[in-house]
Nucleic acid binder design. Structure first.
Lengths: 205, 205
DNA sequence: TGACTGATTGACACTCAGTGCCAGACAGGC
DNA sequence: GCCTGTCTGGCACTGAGTGTCAATCAGTCA
């Protein structure tokens, strides 16, 4: 019956509780707001003790943003798998486009996204996660550009990754402002087009 | 005797106390670390009550980053004053270069900078400030590009400003890693060069 | 000089996030 | 049945940040 076959019972129950707490908490957040929901509320609703909550989530923000860390890893994997003849920008764009999405359907994502832009502490944490993505993706872009991993003087890879993520960010913000009516991918492309050096023979794939 | 001529005594003492508390707090931060310094420590060292501290600074982070908000306004002013025939990138670069610096000498700035990159809560707040800069500078770049201020569809200005600030950020990080040995301006230029679309006849001024 | 106004102050109590510690419950291997 | 390692709830604690209130003090007007 278990989705993930034979694992220690501990591991399975732990994952189940984790998911259940996250689900309960997100319901509370979306109904009464992130800041108005206390950890005690969540723990009570999920039927665990306050102390145990902190054994599953380091902070309240992690409930909302926990997936982002994993998502970064998925993007890195996707980026590594891009063909070697794609330039840095194209590879990044394709990796972002093709990386499997974690999380909910679009309608829920929009609600979460709105909450994120309205809540300073969430916004701050989400940008911290973007910094983690940057640290994750930069080595791969360095490799692609033929820059040594420890070359402190060459900022080209860092700049490209940072700008790509900045474009992703403003595109996400625009997507949220448009209530999800516009295509995120097109928004990202239009943002990148404004800064990307005249594309050197881009592959259309 | 007062530096700022005739103002209400209240205003003058308030500014004096503000500056004194900030100075005292920065000393504590630099000697024993940001997180290891509590608000009670600061209040005690500055000779005011804990409650009064929060009447001068909303958060502990504001002591370190309070200047950044004002700095953003200075950059915006500088940007507005750039000649109309400079393209967006050049105008931004020159505004960042010429805006008057608030804050300490380079050695202290380096210490603060190191502390900033080592302390997650400070890092998060500083990026929030960068977002404020972005909101501040984008309208001016929109104007320069001839984009209507309320045009939600055109992300070009947003993208350029966001990428410029991203470049400033990674340059600042590289500057800090190099212990201030490299020129921040050159680092910014080299980062921007990696992403800026082939400069349309850049003015060298 | 004295009364009034308004901003500032310290003290106290409070909420909430997050951590350390400890004793008990419980699954799994022997 | 015993031992081991993990998870759990409860309790106490720190530290940030807020609301409230009475006392203080600069500035003003009479």
């Amino acid at each position: 019956m278990p989705t993930t076959p034979d694992q220690k019972l501990w591991t399975r129950t732990r994952q189940a509780v984790h998911a259940e707490v996250a689900r309960t908490a997100m319901e509370l957040f979306l109904s009464r707001g992130f800041e108005a929901t206390t950890i005690d509320d969540i723990a009570a609703a999920a039927g665990i003790s306050r102390r145990s909550f902190f054994r599953y989530f380091g902070t309240k923000e992690d409930i909302v943003l926990g997936d982002l860390a994993a998502q970064g890893e998925l993007i890195r994997k996707e980026l590594e798998a891009r063909p070697a003849d794609e330039d840095a920008w194209t590879a990044l764009l394709n990796a972002l486009r093709d990386a499997p999405r974690l999380g909910q359907d679009d309608a829920t994502m929009l609600k979460i996204s709105k909450m994120l832009y309205e809540t300073p502490s969430l916004r701050a944490r989400s940008i911290e996660k973007h910094l983690q993505w940057q640290a994750l993706l930069t080595p791969e872009i360095r490799r692609r550009l033929g820059v040594a991993p420890d070359d402190e003087d060459d900022l080209r890879a860092d700049a490209i990754v940072a700008c790509m993520l900045a474009c992703l960010d403003i595109a996400g913000e625009a997507w949220t402002r448009s209530n999800g009516s516009r295509s995120l991918e097109e928004l990202v492309l239009s943002a990148v087009a404004a800064v990307r050096p005249s594309a050197p023979d881009p592959r259309r794939s």
